[in-house]
Design a protein around this nucleic acid. Structure first.
Ligand code: MN
Ligand code: MN
Ligand code: MN
Ligand code: MN
Lengths: 220, 220
DNA sequence: GATGTAATTTTGATTAGTCAAAATGAGTAA
DNA sequence: TTACTCATTTTGACTAATCAAAATTACATC
């Protein structure tokens, strides 16, 4: 029933909300995230408000209602299950599935989604380690540290990579920074703005802090 | 690049053309097949003509150009491969895949399509026995007889079922009239407008001629 | 040839989604 | 207070896709 466009707006809003205090998202950041002109976002937010999918206070910001969040999580579930499917069943590379899923997430029926979920054995995360919401709309919230802040010298395991960019993901792959890989942070240099990690037998890899911040790890 | 709407118009036009002499399709039948008002079809045909996807002579009819046919066959290929995939890989029933494919055919990239094709072992027909166009746009044209006209008493094999309706397909399934099944036409009664067929050990099944005409068979 | 019918095209409107640019307003600095 | 700045909203316009209903036209019939 909701259009592809509406689904994308809601999904974006959900993701933005996760990073804001009081879940309130400014029109400016919303428009930028969706990739439309500010006035377009204002217009769309008003129609979403009419459909009771968001709450909106002029000049204050916008936030999802419960119905809106439910829908957003449903889209997110489709997106991530599709990504996992494309990698596990069709053998695509994790660096190329995001744009595919961005389209397919709007074309998968509940029935097909359920079959995919089954075929994959009800996975909890997608190829990037992003948690897959349950059909009921629950999202596991692990509190993960990033390579930029975790303890030095402790054995860690990569759990999640916070960037869908194709080039970034290929780089992460080549550097052995993919979900499931065990490693330790060898050193951190604030002046050089760099972090050095070692994964098993591999050569140590040094990356800038902004990249380190996108690799989330859990204790092992 | 072409919209979902354009893809559907072209696919429909291709299928209609197959049934007309000189490949010329009247506006009335085109509009009806797509399910829009006559004026809507006229408007769309004009924009398709601007894109050189169809030839159009006012009050005469419309026909695909080579470029239009190429595109139509590409959509048809996606549609049928998706149907086959849904049945073979995800285990959906052949009676329910058509509407799913009607949406998914617009959301599958060339890359994903190639992987699906590979995973399925390059099938030549979809679950209904419809031929799957090659990537180059070639369609195998078998000349099949239907149960309404084939020879009586000869061993035959069901090759294709010409109706995507869910209820019809469930009925065909229950009657054992699915692609691959061997059978013989026992008798044909013009007065009763009925055809009786027997498949292996099963009880004989009698159907009306209009149904018999939708079940295509090949000699075995 | 005149006329009637039915298919087709044209016209006028509508909805969803979008942008550019003008108008507005809330908060900051003076 | 008064001004200024920058985010936000409003306005006016556009495209794709659609429909209902009026106008046109090709064709068959008388
Ligand atoms: Mn999307
Ligand atoms: Mn992902
Ligand atoms: Mn379709
Ligand atoms: Mn089919």
């Amino acid at each position: 029933m909701p259009s592809t466009t509406v689904e994308d707006y809601l999904k974006r809003l959900y993701m933005l909300q996760q990073q804001t205090e009081r879940r309130l998202v400014s029109m400016g950041s919303f428009a930028a995230a969706v990739g439309v002109a500010p006035g377009t976002a204002t217009a769309m937010v008003k129609t979403l408000e009419d459909s009771r999918l968001v709450e909106y206070e002029s000049r204050q910001g916008v936030r999802l209602t419960d119905a809106g969040e439910r829908l957003a999580l449903h889209v997110l579930r489709r997106h991530r299950l599709v990504e996992q499917f494309l990698v596990e069943v069709l053998g695509l590379d994790w660096s190329e599935v995001h744009p595919e899923a961005e389209v397919l997430e709007h074309a998968i029926s509940d029935k097909v989604l359920a079959r995919i979920d089954e075929l994959l054995g009800h996975p909890e995360v997608d190829p990037h380690g992003d948690p897959i919401p349950t059909p009921a709309g629950d999202v596991a919230d692990r509190t993960l540290a990033s390579l930029a802040e975790c303890e030095i010298g402790q054995p860690m395991r990569v759990a999640q990579v916070l960037d869908q960019d194709e080039r970034f993901l290929r780089f992460a792959d080549e550097s052995g920074l993919t979900p499931g890989i065990d490693l330790t942070v060898e050193s951190r240099d604030d002046v050089a703005d760099a972090v050095t990690v070692r994964a098993g037998e591999r050569d140590a890899v040094t990356v800038g802090t902004s990249v380190a911040a996108k690799i989330l790890v859990e204790g092992v």
